[in-house]
Design a protein around this nucleic acid. Structure first.
Lengths: 145, 145
DNA sequence: ATTAAACAAGACTAATATATCTTATATTAT
DNA sequence: ATAATATAAGATATATTAGTCTTGTTTAAT
């Protein structure tokens, strides 16, 4: 809906790294096991994130990956864009008609535009640190039951 | 984003039928030409819509398709569900974590839930007649330029 | 009756996203 | 030095979506 499955895996991996942050590198296999993601597939995604400097990798024995920078400065849309690519220049209208704009709106324009704005806002305001905190909290609640 | 390309084509076709409603049937090729949709591909989609009674078809020479009922009583989500299938029982959370609910929310839950609601609301409140009117109005504006 | 022209339907092809397999390369423990 | 073990990278495989091709069936004009 919001992004590809690959981007979803990427987000999960980065949340994991934030939640269990450490000076030691974390192996990709540790994350793929934790979230039940195919190992080699996640490895590919991780490579992309490393190229975009969102992750750092340490190769060789006892190697693994780290966050590329402080998680409170990493926003969701960066991860999504790195993996899925940036959104298209001229975004299509919701119904696929040509030339949708405020002046010549497509039939869904007035309803869809604010929703699209809310999505953009969500992806560009949520940072990894906050997300990871909420995951920790969620686990706490679930364990209590 | 909201639905598959097939569903998008289906919506376009039904808007066309609403805008140019007539007692005579409209050929699938007329619509595929108008919206630049691959003819045979649209034909397949139309078959699905006929099976779901959203369209009626008249076979044979001088045949074509009609709306299955009054366009003001046809809502977007019906078209989408007919083509893409109904949404999954237990909708996944935005980040793909297990068990996302109000009690054990995923990290995006609070932001994403109202957006999802707005999308659902949009698809279930917009009817074909309104949409077609707006397309007509849009064309009027565009021609004036 | 015959034929032309429309939708119906199934098999096939192409493109893309997802996933796996194999080999290379880097790094550390021994 | 060597072996073990991690990421890097490229080729291959599978699943899904999008699109095409061919044939069947229905209907009306002739």
């Amino acid at each position: 809906m919001l992004y590809s499955k690959s981007a979803e895996y990427g987000i999960q991996a980065m949340i994991y790294l934030t939640e269990y942050r450490s000076d030691e590198p974390t192996m990709v296999s540790t994350i793929s096991d934790a979230y039940d993601i195919p190992h080699q597939y996640l490895a590919k995604i991780v490579q992309t994130l490393v190229k975009h400097r969102l992750l750092k990798a340490k190769r060789g024995r006892n190697g693994g990956i780290f966050l590329g920078r402080n998680p409170k400065d990493i926003y969701l849309h960066e991860i999504v864009y790195a993996i899925d690519g940036p959104p298209p220049e001229n975004e299509k209208c919701a119904i696929g008609l040509d030339l949708c704009s405020d002046e010549t709106p497509c039939p869904l324009h007035h309803t869809w535009k604010p929703i699209k704005g809310a999505i953009r806002e969500m992806l560009s305001s949520e940072n990894l640190l906050e997300l990871a905190k909420r995951v920790t909290e969620k686990r706490r609640i679930m364990n209590k039951k």
